[in-house]
Amino acid sequence: MMLRVGIGINVDMTDDVLSAIDQPATSLRQLLDTTPSVDEVLSVLTSKLKSRFLSLEENVSPIDDYRSKLLYKNEEIVIREGDIVMDEEKKVVRDSKGKIVYRFKETKGIFHDVTNQGFLILRPSCGDELIIASGEIVPRVEHDL
């Protein structure tokens, strides 16, 4: 099996271009005293990516590092376009007709934690804890604006 990982990084974006983007955005030029070259960014990125994959090959779990960097933990969030919902016993959730729920448009709850597989544990205001494998999260306050 092979993987293609596409990564675009804002390195030298002007304020004009950034302000035209439909969400808060920045670039390394705005963040650092000296803007690195694209080649420098590529070299560091390739090294870091290889190092992370090597750790995985060596069976080192990234969970602690991942947890420490996660945003919105213990906050109310909305998950859009999510996939695979499991209940706390890791059984797939079935709808009222007994069909397995693979996809959902939107669901809300407290972002409790991630599982050992990196899946998101969501605590809805009512019902069982859900384990969600993919989707896009938005903080509830941003979503309700």
Binding site: G8, V11, D12, V38, E57
Partner: peptide, 22 residues
């Protein structure tokens, strides 16, 4: 002036076993 790259990565068996972490 920005960085656009796609990495082509062969996955070994151990990586496939941990695929949810990728």
């Amino acid at each position: 002036g920005n960085s656009f790259s796609t990495f082509c990565i062969p996955l070994d068996r151990e990586c496939v076993r941990h695929i949810s972490w990728i």
